[in-house]
Design a protein around this nucleic acid. Sequence first.
DNA 1: TATTGTGAATTAGTTCACAGCT
DNA 2: AGCTGTGAACTAATTCACAATA
Lengths: 250, 250
Amino acid sequence: MIAQRDQLNAVGGHADERSVAGTDQRSIPEATVARLAIYLRALVGMGKVGVATVSSGSLATAAGVNSAKLRKDLSYLGSYGIRGVGYDVSLLTDQIHKTLGLHQNRAVALIGLGHLGRALAGYAGFASRGFRISAIVDADPAIVGTRVRGLPVQHVDDLDAIVRTENIAIAVLTVPAGVAQEVCDRLVVAGVTSILNFAPTVLAVPAHVDVRKVDLAAELQILSFHDNRKSARADCEPARSGSSTMAVGP
Amino acid sequence: MIAQRDQLNAVGGHADERSVAGTDQRSIPEATVARLAIYLRALVGMGKVGVATVSSGSLATAAGVNSAKLRKDLSYLGSYGIRGVGYDVSLLTDQIHKTLGLHQNRAVALIGLGHLGRALAGYAGFASRGFRISAIVDADPAIVGTRVRGLPVQHVDDLDAIVRTENIAIAVLTVPAGVAQEVCDRLVVAGVTSILNFAPTVLAVPAHVDVRKVDLAAELQILSFHDNRKSARADCEPARSGSSTMAVGP
DNA sequence: TATTGTGAATTAGTTCACAGCT
DNA sequence: AGCTGTGAACTAATTCACAATA
C-alpha cells in the first residue's frame, strides 16, 4: 500500500515553548506547523472561489491528509470551528496566517543568482504568500549592478550592510556548495536567523539560527528507494491489474 | 534552543515490507531513508578527499545528526562497521548506494520548462547521483523541438510514448499549478510511479504512486513561524549576548 | 581502548472513537 | 443530524546507556 506520502518535518529543537503575550502560540508540534502552510494554501484557494464554510473532511481532502489529523492540527490554534457546521474559511485563513507570522511581510534576501536563483527571483508566490524579496546578492562582478525584477544585484561583500538596512529576516541560499558555509557564516554574523538552503551541503550554524534545506538529489534518492522496493515486490507478485483507487488519506 | 532542524519525512504507507530476495531491505524506517541520502553525500565527499575510515561521530557531524541516530540508521542496512575503528568509507558508500537503488541509473523526465525547469535541467547533480535526464517535456509549441542540454524538448501530448520508450521511472513536475493535476494524471496513466512535484498543489494519485513535494512557500512559512516565535521570545528576555555555540546535534 | 550495535526508555506524532455542541 | 474537539490508545522516531568486540 504505497500511497502519497506526506512530507512533514520531524522535530529538531523547540522543546521549550512558553506562552507569550499577544499571539498565542504555546507548543504547536513541528509536524503541525509544516501542515499549516498546506492548509493555508487550500483555504486561500477556497476563499477565492467563494467558499464560505468548509468541513474538516473536505479541507482534509484538499490538503491530502485525513480529517482527524486536520482537526487535531487546527485544535492547537484554538477552537475556531462550529460543531455541526465546519470552519469559516476567512476566519480560519486569518488565524493560520497570523499563527505563521505572515502578517509581518518579512524581508527575504536571495543569495546567489545562478539558474535556480533566477528562477526563484521570478517566483510570483513570494508576495502573495507574505514575503517580499528585498535584496538580491551575488559574487560575480559581471552581474552585480544589473537589475533583476526591479532590484539591483548587490555584492556579497556588502551583505552585512544589506541585512541591516533592509532588515532581512530570511535568506534564501542558492550559491554553489563550495561557498555555502562561508556565505552562511556571513549571514549569521550580519544577524540573519532563518535560512532556506538550496545548496547541497549541511550548514553548521549557532543554535539560535534556523536552517531548512531543500535537496533535489535527496528527494530523488528517496523516490528511488521506494521505486526499487516496488519493483522488487512486483517480482514476487502477480501482475497488478488496473484497479487503482485514489487514496489521499489511508 | 532553536537549532538546525533536520528535515525528515514522516511516514505515509509502506508498513507492509517483506524481505525480498537479493538486496536486503526489510523495513527501513522512512526517517532513516531520508537521512541515508545525506550520509551518502557526506561519504562520497570523504571518499574524494581520500578518507578511508570514518567513525560514527565524525560522519554524524558531517551529516548534521547525532551519532546515536547515525549508528541506529546504519544498523538497518546491516553490520558494516568495525568496533573500535569505525566504518570503511567505500564499503559503506556502496551499501547505501545499493540500498537506495542508485545502481539502476534511473531515467528521469523533466516536465515543464519554465525558469525552474531550466534550472533543474542544468543541475549537474543528476548524473553524479544516479539519475539521468532522459526526456524534457513542455506544452508550449514555441519551445517544443528546441534542444536543452542536448535533449529535444518534446510535447506533453506524447507523454505516453515518451514514458514507455525511455522507460521513465521518475517524473519531475515543474508545471504551473493549474495544470499539475492533469499532467500528473497523464503520467500515472503512462505508468510513472514516482513523482517529484514542485507545483504548489496537492496531487491526487492512486495508492501505488509515490509523490514527494518541494514547496518553497511552505518552507518560508515554516521559517516565518519560528522567526515569529523567536522575536516574541526576545521581547521578554534580556538581549542575547554574542555567546553562540555551534550546535549540530543536541 | 575506542567504537560499534542495540535493547530499553523516552518523546513525538497519528489515529481512534466518542462526548459535546450547534 | 452532523461535525468539531479531544482524551486515550497506538505507532513511529529518537535518545540513552551499555554490553560486545576488534
